[in-house]
Design a protein around this nucleic acid. Structure first.
Lengths: 341, 341
DNA sequence: GCATAGAATGTAAGCGCTTACATAATATCA
DNA sequence: TGATATTATGTAAGCGCTTACATTCTATGC
C-alpha cells in the first residue's frame, strides 16, 4: 500500500482483471459483463482512482475539451453566450477551455496556438476577422471550428450569428423614420473588430441611400467602457451640438452616453436619441429604457455547442452557416427629432 | 515527408540532435548552445512543430494549467477578477481553465473533480463554503489551493479577499448614521453562499447592537438578476411601505431595486435609500449614482495569480491569508431618513 | 456432443514527451 | 600539458492510459 496516486494498473490488480478491461469499463461500459463492472467500480471506489487526463489524451488523441476565445469576458453579453456554450458541452461531457484576446488579433493567434498545443477537439472564435495564421493553424490540426457572433453567407468558414450590417441598417432606418438627420456615432474600436465595423457600415450605407453622410468628426471610437463613452459623448456634443441622434456600439457605451446626456441636462429622447446594441438585461430597467438591438447570445452559445459536438461525432468538418435574427427593440431612448425652433 | 503532425523526433532528426536536446531547448534554453538552439528553432519553424500538451503533461506531471471555479461568469465583478487572474497566469506562461458552478456546491464538487482529473497545477475557488469532499479531493492531489473572495483570519485554508461581515457592518452603520430604522434586505440566496450570508449578518448584528431587528418578512432572497430584484422590491414595499432603507446583496440587485422605486415614483434617496455591493463600473454613472461597497476584484485576481504561482515555484502549500479592504463608497442613493409627517 | 459464431477479456505496443544517468566535449588551472 | 571540473549532449526508461489483435469463454444450432 504505497502512497502514490493509484493508476489503472492498481485498479486492474484489485479487481483481478486486465487494464484493458478497466479501460473498457470506463469508456465502453456495455462491453464488459455487469458483474465484472461491479468489481471494477468497487475497486475504483476503494482506491479513490481518478483517471489521468493527460495519459488519456495522449493515448486516445482526444482531450474532450473545446477551446473558445472571446475578446473579453468582461461583458455580460459574451458571458451569457459562453455560459450556454459551456452547459451544452458539459452535458456531453466536454469541458470548455476559455481564453480571451482583449480584442487583439496577435493575442488571439497566440491563444489559438496555446489551445491547439494543449490539445483541443474543437474551437470557437468570435467574429470572422482573424490573423491569417489562425486559419492555417486550425486547418493543420483538422478539428471542428466555427466563427461565432457573425453571419456571412459568403464565408469560407462555418459561422453562427447574425448579420451586423443588417442590424446597423435597422438602427439607422428607425432613426430616419423618426426624422433624424444629424447623426453621431460612438463605436468600439473598429480596427480588428469586424462586428463593430459592420454595424457602423450598416448605418452609414443606409444614411447614404437617403443622401446623408456622417462627417468623420461625428464618429468617435473608444474602448468599451461606460466612462469612455461618457467622455466621448461630451466631446461629440462639444464639437457638434446640433446632433440629435447618437448610435452607440453596444449597451455599455449607450449607458455612458446616457449619463453624459444627463450631465448636460439634455432630455432623452426629446432632445437627443440614443441607441445601444446587445440588449443586456438591465437595459430595459434603465430610465429611460434603452432602444437597442437584441443579440441572440444564448442561442449562439447553444448552437455553437451543438455544431461542434455534431462535427466531432461525425468526424467531419462540414461547412455550416447558421443565421440568427437580431431584432430591433424599441424602447424609450429614441424619439422624434426635436423641432428646430 | 509524410503528412502526420511532426513530433519532437522529427525535429530532432531535422536538426541532427537528440530528442532530449530538443526538449531542453524548449524548456531550459540556456542549457543548450546558441548555435544548436538556432538549428533547432529553424527545424521547428520548417516543420511547423507544436509540442503535444498531453505528452508533456504526462511525462512531466505538470500541465501548466490552473483551474478556477466561480459561481457565474455572468457578473462583471467576477469577470474582472478572472481577467486579472488570467493575465497574471499568462505572463508566467500558465493557462486558466475556467468553470462555473452556478452557485451549487454539488456542481462545484463535480467541476473540481473534472479539473483534478484533467490535471491542473493549482486551483482557486470562490468563498469558503464548499462540499466537504472538495477539500479531500484537493488535498489528495497536493496542489496549491486558495479560497478567493473571502477573508477569515481563522480559516484553515489560504484565502484572499475581504471580510464580508465588516462590509455589512459599514453599510448598516452608514444607514444608521442617516437615521434609518426601517430596513429591508434584498439578498442573493444565502444557502451555500457564505459571502451573501456574512454581508447580511454584518448588517443584522450592527442593527441588533442598537436594538433594531429586521423581521423575516422584510428580508427577500432572490436570484442575482435585475428583474428579480425589481419584483422583490415591489413585494417588499407592498408588505412594508414604511421601509426607508433597502440594502441589496449586489449592484445588479440594486439596479433592479432602483428601477422598482422609480416605477413607484419613490424619490431616491429622499423617500428611500438603496445600497448595492461590488462597485461595478456603471454604478457611478447611474442617476442617482449608487452607494455601494467596493469589491477589490482586480487586486483579488492579481493576488491569486501571484500566490498560486509562488506556491508552485516553491513546491509548497503554505497557508496564507491576505486581507484586502472593501471600502464604502457613498454616492447618491443614500440620504437622511425622511421626516415622518 | 461438437463445430462455430459472437462476446468477453487479455496482451502488448504505442501515444509524444521528460529526465535521470551516462557519456562526450570543452574549459580551467597548476 | 595533463588532470580535473564544468558544460553540452545522448541514451533510454518511463509517464498512465487506449486499442488492435490474439485468445478464451459462452451460447447456439444441428
Amino acid at each position: 500500500m504505497t502512497n502514490r496516486t493509484p493508476t489503472i494498473a492498481d485498479v486492474a490488480e484489485q479487481a483481478e482483471v486486465s487494464t484493458a478491461t478497466v479501460s473498457r469499463c470506463l469508456n465502453l461500459p456495455d462491453k464488459v459483463k455487469p458483474e465484472v463492472r461491479e468489481r471494477i467500480s468497487k475497486a475504483i471506489q476503494q482506491l479513490g482512482y481518478v483517471p489521468s487526463g493527460a495519459a488519456r489524451a495522449l493515448a486516445s488523441r482526444r482531450t474532450h475539451t473545446i477551446g473558445a476565445i472571446v475578446p473579453t469576458i468582461d461583458n455580460a453579453i459574451f458571458s451569457e453566450a459562453i455560459q450556454h456554450l459551456q452547459s451544452g458541452l458539459t452535458r456531453a461531457n466536454y469541458t470548455l477551455l476559455l481564453a480571451n484576446s482583449g480584442y487583439s488579433l496577435d493575442e488571439e493567434l497566440r491563444e489559438v496556438n496555446s489551445l491547439l498545443s494543449r490539445g483541443i477537439d474543437g474551437i470557437v472564435l468570435v467574429g470572422e476577422m482573424h490573423h491569417p495564421k489562425v486559419y492555417d493553424a486550425i486547418k493543420k490540426h483538422a478539428i471542428p471550428y466555427v466563427n461565432l457572433w457573425t453571419y456571412n453567407a459568403q464565408s469560407k468558414y462555418s459561422c453562427i450569428g447574425f448579420d451586423h450590417l443588417k442590424a446597423g441598417q435597422q438602427l439607422a432606418e428607425h432613426l430616419l423614420d423618426l426624422g433624424h438627420t444629424e447623426f453621431g456615432i460612438i463605436s468600439g474600436f473598429q480596427e480588428n473588430n469586424d462586428r463593430a465595423l459592420l454595424r457602423f457600415q450598416g448605418i452609414q450605407q443606409t444614411l447614404k441611400n437617403v443622401g446623408l453622410e456622417i462627417p468623420e468628426s461625428k464618429i468617435i471610437e473608444c474602448r468599451y467602457s461606460v466612462e469612455q463613452a461618457n467622455k466621448s459623448l461630451h466631446e461629440l456634443l462639444d464639437r457638434h451640438p446640433e446632433t440629435t441622434a447618437v448610435s452607440c456600439g453596444n449597451d455599455v457605451l449607450a449607458i455612458g452616453a446616457l449619463s453624459a446626456a444627463r450631465e448636460r441636462s439634455l432630455k432623452v429622447p426629446e432632445q437627443l436619441s440614443i441607441t445601444g446594441f446587445d440588449n443586456m438585461e438591465l437595459t430595459r430597467f434603465l430610465s429611460p429604457a434603452l432602444t437597442t438591438i437584441n443579440s441572440p447570445s444564448k442561442r449562439m452559445g447553444e448552437h455553437a455547442a451543438e455544431y461542434i459536438l455534431e462535427q466531432i461525432q461525425n468526424k467531419s468538418t462540414e461547412l455550416k452557416r447558421i443565421e440568427l435574427t437580431a431584432e430591433l427593440v424599441i424602447r424609450e431612448t429614441t424619439g422624434k427629432v426635436p423641432s428646430k425652433t
